[in-house]
Structure formats: C-alpha cells, structure tokens
C-alpha cells in the first residue's frame, strides 16, 4: 500500500479503489485512480471542473450505472467486497454507501416521510414506534431535530435550503450507511447553512466514512483530514490535508490551490 494511495497509513480502509478507470464511450474520464478511505477521516476531493472528481465519487456507489455510456474498470471494494461484482446488490450497496447531492433534493413528502421512507423500503423498521425512533435519531444526527420536531408532518420542501440539505443528510443516515458521499453539498447554501453542514460533517466523522467533493478549497481544508487533488482524470496527489495546503509535493497541486494558471 503506497503512501500516495493511503497517506495516513489507514490499517483497515472502509473502501479501497485500485487502478480505477472510467470511460464515457470512447472518452476516458478517470485514468487509473487508487485510493483508500476509512471511517475516522473525512476525505475531500478537489480539482477544477471536469477533472473527474465527481465521476470518481459516483463510482463509489455505482451511480455511474445510470449513465448508459459509462464503463468502469479496476476494482473498488467495500469491506473487502468488490462492489462491481455481479453478486453485489446495487440497492443494498447504495444504502451502505449513501449520497448527498449539490442541490438539496428532499422528496415532496413530509419531513417525517423523507426520513422514514428509506428504512421502510429497506425493511429496517415497520412499526410506527420503530420508525419514530429512527426519524428522531436521524434528525438529531443531522442536527435538524430541534428545528423541526414540532412540524414533522410539514413538507420537506418547505424547509430552508440549509435545512433541506441537512434533511437529505438525515435521510442518508436513516438507512444506517457506512459511507456517505457528498457531492458539493454546500454550493447552493449560504455561509451560515454551510457552517452548520461543516460542523455536522465534523460530528459524523468516526461513525461513517465521509467523502466530500468540493470546489471550495477552504471548505476542503476545514472539514477534511485527507485531500485528493484530481486533474484531467488523474489523481495528482492524495495527502494529509494540512500537508496539501501548506506544502503540496506536486507542481499541479500547488498551482491549483494557490490560484495560478495550471
């Protein structure tokens, strides 16, 4: 296991990618990426638009399956199991590897139903009392409970943007995932809502492996312990966040994070 793949020398990575290549038709979007992530550290993916960071994030729970032209090579494992193996249940995989998107996308249902839906279809709970427990626990972990506990049956879409995003995080948490993927979760939020999400990420660390894609380098610096810099489909550098932002080893990383022409 090289330092470049696993800068913190994580002994038991939750997910491991090895030589992952992604093609959209003939175009290669990811050129052989190897990376480990675990539950104790937040990993940030940074890089300019089109660098492949979101594409790579989406390989981690097979969201690229929904893109007809997309083809993935290499191996990605979750607890050692190949997630692209034919025996892998993709629905189950996406419960274990949850995702939060750029724009908050709550279901057009009540706050309660937004959280209860996943556990119900995954068979985690059926009785109302059990669901109540899951809803409260998930909303508490998402840092939203105090704000919504008296209006659980209002529509989720009536919440503010920041609250909607925390609702989506609560929804992902409700199905007891092991990994949470976040694709620019704060880019549609104001600084206060952003700070709340960042604080939430900090609180969730240790319970889930968290991978966040962000265009905001300060955000990557604030929330992550490991940072991966992508450029033109390459994983240019993967390192401890404080090293990446004070002393990156690669010229391309340096030019990007210091705001120079690459």
């Amino acid at each position: 296991m090289t330092e470049a793949t696993n800068p913190l020398a994580i002994a038991n990575p939750k997910m491991s990618a090895r030589d992952v290549k992604v093609f959209y038709g003939a175009k290669q979007a990811i050129k052989g990426v190897s990376i480990d992530v675990d539950m104790d550290h937040v990993t940030a993916f940074i890089g300019p638009s089109g660098c492949g960071k979101s594409t790579f994030l989406r390989t981690l729970n097979r969201m690229n399956d929904t893109v007809a032209s997309a083809r993935v090579e290499g191996t990605i494992t979750l607890d050692g199991d190949d997630i692209y193996s034919p025996s892998m249940d993709v629905v189950q995989l996406r419960a274990r590897v949850g995702m939060v998107f750029q724009k908050p996308n709550p279901f057009p249902k009540s706050i309660y139903e937004n959280i209860a839906y996943g556990p119900r279809i995954h068979g985690l709970a059926h009785a109302k009392a059990d669901l109540d427990v899951i809803v409260e626990k998930s909303l508490r972990r998402a840092g939203l409970w105090e704000e919504v506990k008296d209006r659980l049956h209002d529509s989720g879409t009536a919440l503010s943007g920041g609250q909607q995003q925390r609702l989506c995080i609560g929804r992902a948490i409700a199905v007891e995932p092991e990994v949470i993927l976040m694709d620019e979760p704060c880019s549609a939020l104001d600084p206060i809502a952003t700070a709340k999400i960042e604080e939430l990420i900090h609180e969730l660390r240790g319970r889930y492996a968290i991978v966040i894609v962000t265009h905001n380098m300060q955000q990557a610096a604030r929330v992550s312990q490991c940072t991966a810099f992508f450029h033109l489909g390459d994983l240019v550098e993967y390192g401890v966040t404080s090293d990446i932002f004070t002393n990156p080893t690669q010229e391309r990383t340096k030019d990007y994070i210091t705001g120079r022409y690459g």
Partner: peptide, 9 residues
Amino acid sequence: RAPMANDLR
C-alpha cells in the same frame, strides 16, 4: 486572499 501552500509560507 487566503494564501495557500508556497504563498502561505
């Protein structure tokens, strides 16, 4: 400017 890396140093 929130300088980074060599700029920060």
